[in-house]
Computed example of a mutant assay.
Amino acid sequence: MPTPQTTLDRLESEAIHIFREVAGEFDRPVILFSGGKDSTLLVHLAIKAFWPAPVPFPLLHVDTGHNFDEVIEFRDQVVAQHGLRLEVAKVQDWIDDGRLEERPDGTRNPLQTVPLLDSITSHKYDAVFGGGRRDEERARAKERIFSLRNSFGQWEPRRQRPELWNLYNGRHRAGEHVRVFPLSNWTELDVWNYIEREGIELPSIYYSHQRDVYLRDGMWLTEGPWGGPRPEETVLHKTIRYRTVGDGSCTGAVESEASDIREVIAEVAASRLTERGATRADDRLSEAAMEDRKREGYF
């Protein structure tokens, strides 16, 4: 008698189907890979989808220059371990040659859009995999698995296509491309349960560790090349972990004693805030902060 499929089996099967669909339908796909948990899961699923053949498309990281050292080391480790191809678009290069200007607040997360779109154009990528999930944020909940972007890389909600019976429409005009989200139907808890089941390694900062942090707008931030703390902000030595990783200037930690995956899963299951809602300052700029950025070309 066949073993009944679990929720994780169904999510894995859907994601693998999406990877294979894109490989058959597009000419130049690419996976966005930062070394964070969701993009690491994407790489794991891509390897499964094409095993024993190599992953047939490269990885792209838009590097703000404000990433955590542990995450960059892990990124390079994964690339070397699996023999993958990695293209790095450094925000600093765009700042140095005048295509971008440093923001007064020091955060570079919003500055990723131009290097991302420039890289897509210069490499002629027609499908770009991202690790976005619908449970993360309201704007991402609106987006389809195959999300058409116009020739300026912008998201147009009215051009979203129906996706009935797992049929995906990748048709696009010259200069347009499609963002693809194989993890759309996963939750943060699904991700962690799958990571446990598959034994997937992650950067150490996803688990509890001690770090000097200061409190700003209800989030624990750490000092780095982006600056801080301000004179009125007190630095404390705390036991924390990161639920999401990104530009260090706007990615907050949470106080946590969860030092292994089972403890993390228990913590996530009890949480009533998504990881972006709890730890990403860039999503708090306005009610529609993420949607505004997506319209400009951000993920």
Rank of each mutant, 00 (worst) to 15 (best):
T3F: 04
P4D: 04
P4C: 05
Q5V: 04
T6Y: 10
T6W: 06
L8R: 04
R10H: 03
S13K: 11
A15N: 05
H17L: 15
E21T: 15
V22G: 11
G24V: 08
F26G: 01
D27E: 13
P29V: 12
V30E: 12
I31A: 14
I31V: 14
G35R: 04
G35Y: 02
G36N: 06
L41Y: 00
V43E: 06
F50H: 07
P52E: 13
A53H: 13
V55C: 11
P56H: 03
L59M: 09
H61V: 00
T64G: 12
G65V: 07
N67M: 12
F68T: 00
F68P: 02
F68Q: 13
F68M: 09
D76I: 05
D76W: 09
A80N: 07
H82M: 00
H82C: 00
L86K: 08
L86S: 09
A89I: 11
A89D: 09
V91T: 10
V91G: 06
V91I: 13
D93G: 03
D96Y: 05
G98Y: 06
G98I: 02
R99K: 11
L100A: 06
E101T: 09
P104I: 13
N109M: 12
N109C: 15
P110S: 13
Q112I: 15
L116P: 11
S119R: 13
T121Y: 11
Y125N: 02
Y125P: 02
D126H: 04
G130N: 15
R133C: 14
E137H: 12
R138T: 03
A141H: 01
A141N: 11
K142S: 10
E143L: 14
E143Q: 14
I145Y: 03
F146A: 15
F146E: 04
N150A: 05
G153A: 09
Q160P: 01
Q160L: 05
R161G: 12
E163Y: 08
N166H: 03
L167Q: 14
Y168L: 14
Y168M: 10
N169Y: 09
R173M: 02
R173A: 07
A174T: 10
V178W: 00
R179S: 01
R179P: 00
P182R: 08
S184G: 11
W186P: 05
W186Q: 02
T187F: 09
E188L: 03
V191R: 02
I195W: 07
G199T: 10
L202T: 07
L202C: 08
P203N: 12
S208H: 06
S208L: 07
R211Q: 15
D212C: 03
P225D: 07
W226E: 08
P229H: 04
P229G: 07
P231C: 07
P231E: 13
V235S: 12
V235P: 10
T239I: 04
I240A: 03
T244V: 12
G246D: 02
T251I: 06
A253H: 05
S256E: 09
A258P: 10
S259P: 01
S259C: 05
D260M: 01
I261C: 03
I265N: 00
A269D: 13
A270H: 00
S271F: 00
R272P: 01
E275Q: 10
G277R: 09
R280S: 07
A281M: 10
D282Y: 11
S286T: 12
A289H: 08
M290V: 14
K294S: 07
R295P: 02
G297T: 11
